[in-house]
Design a protein around this nucleic acid. Sequence first.
DNA 1: AGCGATGCGTTACTTTATTACAATGCGGTT
DNA 2: AACCGCATTGTAATAAAGTAACGCATCGCT
Lengths: 168, 168
Amino acid sequence: MPDHDHDHVIAATFAPHDHRECAHRALDEAAARLAEQGARLTPVRRRTLEILLESHRAMGAYEVLDRLAAEGFGRQPPVAYRALEFLVTHGLAHRLQRLNAFAACLHPGHDHHPAFLICRSCDKVAEAAAAPIRDALTAVAAQGGFRVERATIEALGLCATCAAEGVA
Amino acid sequence: MPDHDHDHVIAATFAPHDHRECAHRALDEAAARLAEQGARLTPVRRRTLEILLESHRAMGAYEVLDRLAAEGFGRQPPVAYRALEFLVTHGLAHRLQRLNAFAACLHPGHDHHPAFLICRSCDKVAEAAAAPIRDALTAVAAQGGFRVERATIEALGLCATCAAEGVA
DNA sequence: AGCGATGCGTTACTTTATTACAATGCGGTT
DNA sequence: AACCGCATTGTAATAAAGTAACGCATCGCT
């Protein structure tokens, strides 16, 4: 996916869209990527990803766990944490530090460390191209002799859809 | 403090320096700011800030609490959380999302929402000018119709001092 | 002195996350 | 097929982080 599509991607997350298609495609891409890497998409892992993909919101580990338990998987925290950690490690989900929560990655393999835009009204989370932001950060840090290795960039604000609906 | 001093500020945090002077000055500035605002720097609050100022590291709420309890203050979590929240609200301390921890603000009143540079080797935390970074973030977000209200920018990496000491 | 607001301390509880260990199941070899 | 080694899943138990609710003390004001 070329960089100039990113504005489209952000808008697509917040605007109404064919979510079935959207989730399905992400799942397919995920399966393909894992096959390449020789990693296994087991039932719990697959189901965890599907649950995250049901909405564009971030979910807490215990929210995911409740769902898994209700479907016959284990009901202890490690079940959810392990599946989530696996997904994050393989670039199929992201962890949102501000929220202590997890969200499915919508375009795995593209930019594994995007910036996150969290709408405070509808709670949806979009991924944005982090490269220009990370560049600015790296530059500022370099002036102080600091070498940036990993960056957490999360913005809280209002999405276009909620703004259009008159949310202040 | 002018913007071009920021590189100096970053380096000053990580390099050896007269920390007694550094902490003392931050405490004075804090007291002055609170006086202006008519807010009270009570004993617990003052001590909490002093504890944070002892190092340039971020401390967990319970680590602070242990110190407070040992000095005769309350030993229940709210004691620490309230003092820390007060300091954060008044711009005298920052919360680091990645670490679930708090760090004293070294130049209160300057830029209340800086970017943070966290050294993975020495654990010190420096504040960097966030304006250029936030601008890049705001621009990327705006292309997707998203209005950024608050941003969390935290970088993990290696400071100049640790790098010079040969830490990989 | 009296009053309201703020602050501090407590108890109790919720939410989030990890450690440790047993059992299962899968892939590859003999 | 029988075997081995390892990843995976499940459990119990516990740690770490954060909040809610409430009473008492203290500050600042009239």
